[in-house]
């Protein structure tokens, strides 16, 4: 199952908080698709999620933002 979360316009570190809350709601092994802004968010969020033990499957650049596929590992 894949859940989606649009975090465009949500600054750091609130975007991380929102991702954490969303990840808690998907099952371990499931995937969360996140849309985040360029700049600070794309620099910080993947690193923070990796550090928290989640798996970044894919990062794709869209027009002016990024789409991140994260698999819940913990």
């Amino acid at each position: 199952m894949t859940a989606k979360l649009d975090l465009r316009g949500v600054p750091c570190p609130l975007n991380l908080v929102k991702v954490k809350l969303a990840i808690e709601k998907v099952a371990v092994g499931d995937i969360l698709e996140i849309e985040i802004d360029d700049g600070e968010p794309i620099q910080n969020l993947p690193v923070s999620l990796g550090r928290q033990g989640q798996e970044i499957l894919e990062t794709t650049e869209q027009q002016g933002y990024f789409c991140l596929k994260v698999r819940r590992r913990l």
Binding site: P13, L14, L16, V17, K18, K20, L21
Partner: peptide, 9 residues
């Protein structure tokens, strides 16, 4: 979510 963000993280 904003108020407790530092806890939730």
């Amino acid at each position: 979510i904003q108020r407790y963000s530092r806890n939730i993280i």
